Lab assay of single mutants.
Amino acid sequence: MQIFVKTATGKTITLEVEPSDTIENVKAKIQDKEGIPPDQQRLAFAGKQLEDGRTLSDYNIQKESTLHLALR
């Protein structure tokens, strides 16, 4: 499925993911596309910060959802 990640600079990244993917996997995909190390990424959805060990389906993130990326 496709999801979107909006960066602090307003850029939107499109990612191909599975509901079973962990947040860690998603951060690795962002690193592949943007070169941002996962340990510098903070992802949020619906106002909640997402934890590495959880999956997209844990957070009820569905196709075409938009996550927000902040850098630490």
Rank of each mutant, 00 (worst) to 15 (best):
E34K: 04
V5T: 02
M1Y: 15
N60L: 15
Q41R: 01
G47D: 11
L71T: 11
L56R: 00
A70K: 08
T22R: 09
G53C: 04
F4L: 08
V5Q: 00
Q41K: 01
Q62D: 11
Q2K: 12
Q41M: 13
H68P: 01
T14E: 14
V17C: 03
K33Q: 07
G47V: 02
I23V: 13
I30H: 00
D52L: 06
I30M: 04
R42P: 02
T66V: 13
Q62W: 14
K29Q: 09
A8K: 08
K29V: 05
T12Y: 15
T9D: 15
D52K: 04
F4D: 03
N60H: 10
F45I: 07
S20C: 04
N60W: 10
I61M: 03
S65Y: 14
I23R: 01
K33L: 10
T14K: 07
V26H: 00
K27S: 02
A46M: 13
E51S: 06
A8Y: 07
L15W: 01
K33E: 08
T55N: 06
L71H: 13
G35S: 12
K29T: 03
Q40E: 12
S57N: 06
A8I: 15
E24I: 07
N60D: 14
R54I: 12
L67G: 01
L50F: 02
T7G: 06
E34M: 10
I23L: 08
Q49W: 05
Q41I: 11
T12C: 03
H68L: 13
L15Q: 01
E16P: 06
K33G: 05
F4C: 03
D52S: 12
S57M: 15
K27D: 00
T12N: 07
S65R: 03
F4G: 03
D21L: 11
L69M: 10
A70C: 04
Q2F: 11
P19D: 10
I3S: 00
T9S: 09
T22F: 09
D58G: 05
T22N: 09
I30T: 02
I61V: 15
D32P: 02
A70G: 08
P37H: 09
K48I: 14
N25E: 09
R54W: 12
A46R: 05
T9F: 07
Q62H: 06
T55K: 09
T14G: 11
V5W: 01
